Structures are given as C-alpha cells and as structure tokens.
Simulated assay, not measured.
Amino acid sequence: MARGNTRQRIQDVALELFAEQGYEKTSLREIAERLDVTKAALYYHFKTKEDILIGLFQDLTRPMDELIAWGQTQPRTLETRQEALRRYQRALLDAAPLYRFMQENQATVRELSIGLTFKERMLEVTELVQEPDFAMADRVRCVSAIFTLHAGTFFMQNVEGDLEEKHEAVLEVALDLLAQAHHAP
C-alpha cells in the first residue's frame, strides 16, 4: 500500500475489497480481517462503510477541488483551459481506483451523498474549459475533451502499448479538441 497511516490503509484496503466483491457485499468485518486489526480498531476511524467511502472520496478528489479553485482565478484563455486539462488528467490518474469504483458501482454512488457532489464537481470542471458564448459544436468539443481524458484513463488500459505513451496520446487528443473549440477574441 502506497499510503502509510492507519486511516489511509483502511481506505486503501476497503477500496480493494469494494472493487473485488462489490460495495454491498463487503463488510466492515472483512475489511478489518484483511487489515489484520480488530473491528474496534476500524470503528475508531470509521463507523460505517459509507464513512470510509466518503473519506476516500474527499482525499482522492482534493486535487479536483484544487483544480476548480485554481481555474476560477485564472484568465479565460486557451492556455488556461489547456493547463486545466493537464491538471485534470493528473487528478484522474491519481484517483483512478476511486473512479473505477464509481463507474462499477453507479447505483450505490447515486444513493450516497458523494454522487451529487461528484456531479457538481464535473459540471464545474467542464465550465473551466469552455465559454458560454461558444457555438454548440465547440461546447461539445470542450466537454468531449474532458470525457476523452475519462475514456483514456479507464479504457486505454485494454489497448496494447506503453502506459506513458497512451496517457500522452490521450492528452494530445483532448488538447486538440480544446484547440478546435477555441475562438480568438
């Protein structure tokens, strides 16, 4: 496990188990057993599975929140939009296990409080890369650039090739879409 403290280890193991057997089928007892700790030790940090998931979501989406805060203070230029895409790709890659969980457990995510806040974040990120006065086709290009990063993060793993090269190619395509949508003042 990459992260060291107990709280983070609990989250990492819980996410592994959620991915292996599904959120609904994973119990706090199984998480404690995998960690080789007592259930009481687990309860000290998290009272419920939802608490673990919310903690994970907050930790792993912090870069997304930082991106939104940064983007809202920047000039509305093509360069800013391009940097926003680069930062978003890094956030996606860092949080890939959580996003995979969300993709595979959409019904669960919708029922939990994190579903709505994630949707709100996504809307804010798409606002960073487009302008309200863009033509509809250009707005679609901007939103497509975001979803190119999503597709590249999760679906390119099944494509042969060097991982870094795939990430660079995905970013290049997303940046091309953004450049096509950019209107010079």
Rank of each mutant, 00 (worst) to 15 (best):
G4C: 00
T6Y: 00
R7F: 01
R7I: 00
R7N: 12
Q11P: 03
V13S: 05
A14N: 03
L15C: 07
L15D: 00
L15V: 14
E16V: 07
F18D: 04
A19Y: 09
E20L: 14
Q21R: 15
Q21K: 11
Y23R: 06
E24K: 05
E24P: 00
S27N: 11
L28I: 10
R29C: 04
E30H: 15
I31K: 03
I31D: 02
E33A: 14
L35K: 03
V37C: 01
V37D: 01
T38L: 10
T38V: 07
A40I: 07
A41W: 01
A41H: 08
L42G: 10
L42S: 13
Y43V: 07
Y43W: 04
H45M: 00
F46D: 06
F46M: 12
F46A: 07
K47E: 00
T48H: 14
E50Q: 09
E50A: 15
D51I: 06
I52P: 02
L53R: 11
I54H: 05
I54L: 14
I54T: 13
I54A: 08
G55Y: 04
L56A: 07
L56G: 10
L56Y: 00
Q58S: 15
Q58K: 09
D59Y: 14
P63T: 15
E66F: 06
L67Y: 02
I68T: 05
W70L: 11
W70C: 06
W70P: 12
W70F: 09
P75Y: 13
P75H: 03
P75M: 07
P75Q: 08
R76M: 03
L78V: 09
L78A: 07
L78I: 05
R81E: 15
R87H: 09
Y88R: 05
Q89Y: 05
A91Y: 15
A91I: 11
L92C: 05
L92N: 04
L93K: 05
P97H: 02
Y99I: 04
F101I: 06
M102K: 00
M102S: 02
M102Q: 09
Q103Y: 13
Q103C: 01
E104N: 09
E104G: 15
N105S: 14
T108L: 02
V109G: 02
R110D: 07
L112G: 03
G115W: 10
L116Y: 12
T117F: 15
T117D: 05
T117L: 13
F118G: 07
F118L: 07
K119Y: 14
K119D: 11
R121Y: 11
R121F: 13
T126L: 14
L128Y: 15
Q130S: 11
F134S: 03
A135D: 09
A137V: 11
R139F: 01
R139H: 13
V140Y: 06
S144A: 12
I146K: 02
F147S: 08
H150T: 01
H150A: 09
A151K: 02
G152S: 08
F154H: 08
F154C: 01
F155C: 12
Q157K: 07
V159H: 12
E160A: 15
E160T: 14
G161N: 02
D162L: 01
E164D: 02
E164Y: 06
E164P: 00
E164M: 08
K166R: 13
H167T: 00
E168A: 12
A169S: 14
L171W: 05
L171I: 12
E172F: 03
E172P: 04
V173T: 10
L175D: 11
L175H: 11
D176F: 13
A179W: 08
A181E: 01
H183I: 11
